[in-house]
Amino acid sequence: MASSSSSSLSRVVVKSSDNNLFVVNKKVASQSQLLKQCIDNMEEKGTNDVILIPLSNVTSNILTLVLEYCEKHADFADDDNNNQELKQWDHEFLKKFDYATLNSLTMAADYMVTKSLLNLCCQFIADSIKDLTVQQIRQIFDIKNDFTPQEEADIKNENAWAFR
């Protein structure tokens, strides 16, 4: 659909759920497939106006973090995920957050279709919870124990998973 009238946007404005506006340059925004799709659609239509993309599911606190990630990763090529410097930066970036923030960030990455951030968050959460107890897991993920004490004891003793 590209035509001579198609324009090229350099920036977009993203609106968080609590109505704060963020001006984001196109290269950074393209780290999110959701934002990229919006930009592509507008460019095909030949709009020259700055476009506004409302994100009804992401608060400004979390959006700031997603954009910080996108800004860093926009400087690296797509196949640069094994870059040691970038890996180190990713780790330091996530290390600062508590589980509540990590969970919100993960959901935002999922909603904004930022696959690399989603994978990173999931791996980071997995690595940090793997040695925790069942009780701690329930607390972190806000899960109610819906087993009876007898059922829980049975599962604990269920060491063989074979159907026999």
Binding site: A126, V134, R138, F141, D146, K156
Partner: peptide
């Protein structure tokens, strides 16, 4: 907010087996 099921799957599928054998008691 509780994480949606598909994200729970993404996280749990990255855990070692010994953790998963323990976590099947979560709920």
């Amino acid at each position: 907010a509780a994480l949606p099921q598909e994200i729970i799957v993404e996280i749990l599928s990255r855990l070692p087996v010994n953790s998963l054998l323990r976590f099947k008691r979560v709920c």
